[in-house]
Write a protein that binds this DNA or RNA. Structure first.
Lengths: 228, 228
DNA sequence: CCAAAAGTGTTGCTTGTACACCCATGT
DNA sequence: ACATGGGTGTACAAGCAACACTTTTGG
């Protein structure tokens, strides 16, 4: 051992967002270990040897949703000395965005996990409510700097669906016309020749995200300040 | 012990920015422990029991600069398994902004520390160059979302000095007139009746940051996109 | 026919950007 | 007198925001 210093348990807590029924969802489960066993908690786990924080988060995600290749972003480190009454644990929070229709429902069920609307997050253990707050902020920042949704929407989506997603993320409404124009100006989605006729009488064209390469993004600053 | 899991050394690495001679500076020192002893490194240390990550960073700052009450912001966790050849160390990076004229030069000297321009950062140990990059990004984001400089400039400063600071942070020039108007519109600084006559023939009014309370900030989005 | 979402257009306003231009003064 | 940074003003462009209006079709 080269260094003589105290060591710590290091955990990852995943703020896993999905989107369904025009509502931003958060994956929560009943914690299965003491302390606070049975209470609502974020999906989390401890970092293992030979594993980076991101590796650990991906492992947790795979174990709980069956998904790989997930978009992950660090939120922050939470390290208050008494944040976990069971032991001194330093936790790195990460936010993950997943397509809710692709996850393994059986796995989620086995984990005692449930999707809950971000508007109805129950009291969570420790500082997890605070982590959710910060995680949502991180998502909002991301969604203002670029057009988010690739990881949350199905392959094909209408403008209405994209707008609903943004309304869920920012917890407010956007003017349909202005939102459309703003998104189009970013030049990152393209229209298909198929129409969705389920969600409106007239029918709305499906769109899809362009490939990373062809979506020429010259400093795309989104700056969503559209009012309802 | 409640949990059975591997434990890790947790470090803090501080990206300490100061500002002097129209140049953004970074505090570096010669590492005094093996491995990589003597090489350039960020100011850092290990988290102790009973100490949060922020506590540890403040301790490191105090030990190296003698300063307390420093603005601190988390950058990210760096946790690649082999990032430190001496041992498995998970490091939380934080960015700190200090007024360079207030630090304890003697302390800094004892630490073998030196201020280096961010434009001339040498090869650092481990992943510290990457940490500096991320730290600068964090500073830039902060400086675009609000008027930064409280912690970097002296009490009284001219528009020229503030603009120079921003030019150092963003590594580009700003139009003097437009910069002035933009900053004034934020309504967070006030003019004093004293003039600085050293840096220009005409003399420039000193300004200072208003108190947090009286600087009514209605969603101040800075959005520095001024061209040279 | 009516409601409701899709999609387009118009207009006023705010803000960014590029300048021109005067001011004060040390050299 | 002139070069230099300070400070103000102007004019155009771009983007935001509010909202009118037309299209389409299921009920």
């Amino acid at each position: 051992m080269t260094y003589q210093h105290p060591k710590f348990l290091v955990a990852v807590d995943c703020v896993i967002f999905g989107y369904q029924d025009a509502d931003l969802k958060l994956l929560l489960h009943h914690r299965d270990i003491e302390p606070a066993k049975g209470q609502w908690s974020l999906m989390g786990g401890f970092v293992s040897d030979g594993e980076s924080v991101e590796d650990a988060a991906m492992r947790v995600l795979y174990q709980t949703t069956g998904l790989t290749n997930i978009y992950l972003e660090q939120v922050a480190a939470f390290s208050a000395v008494d944040r976990d009454p069971g032991a001194r644990v330093i936790s790195i929070a990460l936010v993950a965005l997943i397509r809710i229709d692709e996850h393994d429902r059986e796995l989620v069920r086995k984990n005692g996990a449930h999707w809950r609307s971000v508007n109805e997050v129950p009291k969570l253990i420790f500082d997890h409510n605070e982590i959710v707050e910060k995680g949502l902020e991180t998502l909002q920042k991301r969604a203002s700097n670029e057009l988010a949704g690739r990881e949350l929407l199905p392959e094909h989506f209408t403008f209405g669906q994209l707008r609903s997603l943004y309304e869920a993320i920012f917890q407010r409404t956007f003017d349909p016309g202005n939102f459309r124009k703003k998104v189009l100006s970013l030049n990152v989605i393209e229209r298909l020749d198929i129409k969705n006729t389920k969600e409106s009488k007239k029918g709305a064209y499906y769109h899809r995200f362009k490939d990373q390469n062809e979506s020429n993004d010259p400093e795309r600053i989104f700056k969503i300040h559209l009012k309802g």
